[in-house]
Amino acid sequence: MTDAPTLTARQAFELLLDGNQRFVSDTAEHPNQDAARRAETAPAQRPFAVLFGCSDSRLAAEIIFDRGLGDLFVVRTAGHVVGPEVLGSIEYGASVLEAPLVVVLGHDSCGAIAAACAVLEDGVAPAGYVRDVVERVTPSVLAARASGHHAHAEILEEHVRHTVDLLLDRSRILAERVAANQAAVVGLCYRLADGSAHLVAARGLDIPAGSPT
């Protein structure tokens, strides 16, 4: 496979950001999306990043980061909420497939965050398993509000940071790989209107949160 076997976490992060900048500027190159790449990746996959994002239909990872087949190992749930299947999938991408970077990707106008805020305000929980999603987002909303943050963007950033820390807290495999400098976990917030992603959390990567991306 190309790229992935030799990339560091920092190089993988920069590769993602370069692709996102191309997407924002409408100069996408659509790499690794041809028949040759399809044939190359058929025997095995070696993605350079695990991307754990929200299931929102406007958050298609390979499009917004201008990547192609075999580049990203994508795991998605509504509100990027974490459960055993999610942790197992991320651990598989990071340890078995040896992807050096794990990305938590949140976005503005997130329905799961809006629903959690609504439940706290009116006390009416949604039906079915949607309630489970909302309950898993609620701690982030409460933490943001306890710090005096009430805007959706502020709650989103708190939820992304909370998810990054939760992954490292619950996954010993991931925490050990970060501690051994074999992987990094970062949190990005995506803006639907302009297509840009900005950094809000970094573990195992020497980049301050809030740095230009």
Rank of each mutant, 00 (worst) to 15 (best):
D56V: 04
I90Q: 08
I63A: 05
D71L: 03
R10S: 14
R22D: 12
H152D: 15
Q21H: 15
L192A: 13
V160W: 09
L15S: 01
V119Q: 10
H149K: 13
A12I: 00
T77Q: 12
E14V: 01
V86S: 08
L142I: 13
R136D: 06
V133G: 06
E62F: 00
L167N: 01
L72R: 05
A115K: 02
D165V: 00
E29I: 15
F73G: 06
D56E: 09
G210W: 02
N181M: 11
V50E: 05
D169C: 08
V102D: 10
R177C: 10
F52W: 12
A36M: 11
S147N: 14
A183N: 14
C110N: 07
S89Y: 04
A94H: 00
E154N: 00
G128W: 06
A127Y: 09
R203I: 03
H162T: 09
D194E: 14
A201W: 08
N32A: 15
C189L: 06
S211F: 09
A78L: 10
F52N: 05
L7G: 00
T138Q: 12
A184S: 15
L72P: 08
A49I: 11
V124C: 09
R170E: 12
R170K: 10
I113C: 02
L16V: 01
G88E: 10
L192W: 04
R177L: 11
L142Y: 04
G128A: 12
E91S: 07
D108K: 01
P208I: 14
V185S: 12
D3Q: 03
C54L: 12
S89I: 12
D56C: 11
L166C: 05
G19R: 01
A44I: 03
D34S: 14
A112L: 07
A184C: 12
T6K: 11
T138Y: 03
R38W: 14
V137H: 05
L168A: 01
L166T: 13
E158W: 06
A49N: 07
D165W: 02
D169V: 04
G187K: 14
P47L: 04
P212M: 00
D122Q: 14
T27V: 13
G68I: 02
A44C: 10
G93K: 06
L72D: 03
A193E: 15
G70M: 05
A197Q: 03
A4V: 08
T77P: 13
P43F: 08
S57K: 00
L142G: 00
I173V: 15
R177N: 09
R145I: 12
